[in-house]
Design a protein around this nucleic acid. Structure first.
Lengths: 132, 132
DNA sequence: TCGCTTAATGCAATTGAGTTGCAAAAATAA
DNA sequence: TTATTTTTGCAACTCAATTGCATTAAGCGA
């Protein structure tokens, strides 16, 4: 009997999980829940999509971005596997509303006194190359 | 008759607007809609608070921060008046959930090629001095 | 100071994202 | 194949935010 160590719950590979993960893997952009639902032609229940996204977040396969307009987007982080590391900048286009990971740009900041920094959320806002 | 120039809509000073603005002015922290409602002892209708916040945002007297947990907060930007400029870092404490403007810390970044950057949203996540 | 115009307010109803409970279906290990 | 447990789909629910509309009140001009 194990009292102090809780086994991580086993997760299963299901068509929904595979399809959603592959969709995010192949997408250049971060996708919202609604966009994922559309691209799957509404073959998955909306609740299932939320739960699959939670599992993928939990396992570190994807990351979550809360855009400045409040829209939540999900993306596979290509450059930082296998250990997840979201220390990169996102770009949010105010015209097409698309959110992209700028993997090549690293954020620089001075750590303020007495604050303990564990993570960074850095989004540049403006107009993307396609919309200029 | 003016065809091409639309007069900006006149706004009025009301007790609600004054109270909400003074509340944000005197607060060290960014406040959410719910927090504002509480601190006004529920004397204002929640819809009125939303509409006053919209007007204050419109006039540039306050700015809006969408926290990583999705909670929207509002703050007066003390250092950048009269011209509003939100080019500063926010700190979001994962324990007490408070969001602070770190006016003294300026974000540094390389502008990515072909992107037009008009604004910056930079939040450091972690533990604030009070919670360490 | 008084009226008039129009912005602001309060209330009710609505929208939309996200969550929860539960029974049925399906993935995996034995 | 069977048994176990996760995952799914559906319905119902929560909560933040928005909209419509009638009423109230700010503030300008007379």
């Amino acid at each position: 009997m194990q009292y102090f160590f809780k086994m991580p719950k086993a997760t299963r590979n299901t068509p929904a999980k595979t399809k959603i993960y592959e969709l995010l893997l192949s997408s250049e952009l971060a996708l919202s829940h609604a966009e994922i639902q559309q691209r799957l032609d509404f073959t998955c229940d909306r609740v299932t999509i939320y739960r699959v996204l939670d599992r993928l977040l939990e396992s570190g396969q994807i990351h979550k971005i809360v855009n400045v307009d409040g829209v939540v987007k999900y993306a596979c982080c290509k450059t930082c596997s296998p250990v997840h590391q979201h220390n990169h900048i996102h770009f949010s286009c105010e015209r097409c509303k698309e959110v992209t990971c700028l993997n090549e740009v690293e954020p620089v900041y001075q750590i303020p006194k007495n604050y303990l920094v564990t993570d960074v959320s850095f989004t540049l806002l403006g107009v993307c190359p396609q919309c200029r």
